[in-house]
């Protein structure tokens, strides 16, 4: 009884983690289940965003302020602002977002070429066409 209560009591504080896990699993299922190449890529993006959310969440410090140097002198700064959020996960995720965008771009470029060669972006229809003319690169 009490354990269930504790479980539900912890739920709001862990909301972001729950959302991250749900998104993670959703994304993974879309990647594995979808037969449309673009939808697969969308699933991949959802999957990556879930991990980004996890990182961003861990940067949050309770009662923490944005880690930006205030414009007012430090001497008259309110004493309350001594607690800053952790900026490092944000910096990491900025990099990871760039990587994710690059992955999506390469994936989309490959899909364009697949469509040019096979005339479709659906995996079942691609499997029906085992032989297609090779593409001559410039």
């Amino acid at each position: 009884m009490s354990s269930v209560e504790a479980w539900f009591g912890a739920l709001p504080g862990l909301l972001n983690y729950w959302v991250a896990i749900i998104l993670l699993v959703c994304g993974l299922i879309i990647v594995m289940d979808s037969r449309n190449l673009i939808k697969k890529l969308i699933g991949l993006n959802i999957f990556q965003s879930a991990v980004f959310l996890l990182f961003i969440t861990m940067g949050k410090v309770s009662q923490g302020h944005p880690p930006i140097l205030p414009s007012i002198p430090r001497s008259i700064m309110p004493a309350a602002i001594s607690n800053f959020s952790n900026p490092l996960p944000h910096a990491l995720i900025l990099t990871a977002i760039v990587v994710g965008v690059a992955t999506t771009a390469v994936g989309l470029a490959l899909i364009v070429r697949i469509r040019r060669a096979y005339g479709t972006i659906h995996e079942d229809q691609i499997a029906d066409k085992p032989e297609v003319e090779p593409e001559i690169m410039p």
Binding site: L24, L28, V31, L37, K40, L41, L44, F47, Q48, V51, L54, F55, M58, P89, L92, A96, V99, T103, V106, G107, L110, I111, R113, I114, A117, Y118, I126, V132, E133, P134, E135
Partner: peptide, 29 residues
Amino acid sequence: PKAILAAYRYLIVGAVGATFILLSIGLLY
């Protein structure tokens, strides 16, 4: 042309793998 398909499949699998590694690094951090 199957090379493009092979590259695409590797991209999907490889990106999932790399994101798993990112997740692991996040948990460690």
